[in-house]
Simulated assay, not measured.
Amino acid sequence: MTRIRFPRLFLAALAVTVSCGLSAAEDEMPAIALASAEHAPLVAVARAGQRLVAAGDQGVVVLSEDGEHWRQARSVPVDSLLTALSFVDERQGWAVGHGGVVLHTEDGGESWSVLARLESRPVLLSVLFENAQHGIAVGAYGYAAQTRDGGRTWQPLVVSAEGDDFHLNHIFAGRSGGLFIAGEAGHAYRSLDHGESWQALDTGASGSLWSGAGLRDGRLLMAGMSGRVLLGDRQGERWQSLDSGSHEAITAVAQLADGRVALVGNGGLLALSDSRLERFSAVQREDRLNLSALAPRTDGHLLLFGPAGVIAQ
């Protein structure tokens, strides 16, 4: 029997599924202009210096200097789903999404241009730029590619030596210099040479891992299906399970200024760890909206992102 698999694109709320034939239309239209774009479905958020930049469905990108007042980006040349963002400073950033699209901004997200449409138009799920030249994008069915010229040209990467096609859901950097990928069915990978070669990690998990983060003390965190949270050492050699306080799928993690870790996920899940990262306290929003991303505000409060756009916590 053929497996039907759903990568971490956006949550059930967008009803986005992936198939081998999915690609961007040849006559791509620019992003839809909205009167209140901050209420459009949003999937990803990143910081460009002090500015917050969030992106999502129909090519919508919104910006905020304070997390309270938002405006739509002036120019985004595609109306496809944008799934991930990466900034190297307050001005230079990249966005990826459906149809293998790679966008670039040089003004902190105000305007964007198409740098590339990757061969076979894969569904891209995550992107990480280590600097203004070197970046790696990963996605559905084991897709991975890197660029060494700021995103203009891309070369395929082999992440799994086994040649499998498990979805590569999220790429992130550890504090000790390694790169890590959280993947489908408990698969995770590590590179200690800036993405040139990859090794599989034994996480002990079987369910999909959808997000990860390098913590400030050097340890690693991955999270995913059924409320699973894994805490790893600096190299990802040893992992232990933490109780998230929920069985809902976790879609994003972030470390707060005080060292605690926040998690969001399906069913309106929001969980906060204690200061020693030993346990989490979980609550569910009354609206039960699936959540896809989060960002700490400068005042210590959290911003949540999902099918209703920006949600102040």
Rank of each mutant, 00 (worst) to 15 (best):
Q92N: 11
S241V: 11
L85F: 02
V60N: 11
S23T: 04
G268Q: 02
N131S: 12
L291A: 01
E130W: 11
T203Y: 01
V43N: 05
V158D: 10
V61K: 07
T2M: 10
R190E: 07
Q235N: 13
C20A: 07
T105N: 10
E65L: 13
L272D: 02
F129S: 08
E162V: 05
V61N: 07
T153R: 13
R117N: 06
A35C: 00
G183K: 01
A33C: 03
A188D: 11
M222Q: 11
R228C: 02
S241H: 07
F172E: 02
H104T: 00
L221D: 06
V159P: 12
T83E: 09
A223K: 01
V78F: 10
E38P: 03
C20S: 12
T105G: 07
D287L: 00
T2Q: 15
L9M: 15
S80K: 10
G139D: 15
V53H: 02
L277K: 07
A200P: 11
R285K: 02
F305A: 03
L242Q: 01
A35L: 14
N290H: 14
V158R: 15
P77M: 06
H134M: 09
G97H: 08
R279M: 06
V53K: 02
D193E: 04
E162Q: 15
M222N: 03
V60F: 12
A24Y: 07
V229K: 04
V16Y: 08
L124I: 13
R3V: 11
S176L: 12
V253C: 03
S206F: 06
S36D: 15
L125M: 14
V123K: 04
A37T: 05
L179Y: 04
H69K: 09
A44P: 09
P307M: 04
Y141V: 01
R279K: 13
A137N: 09
A308C: 00
G245V: 07
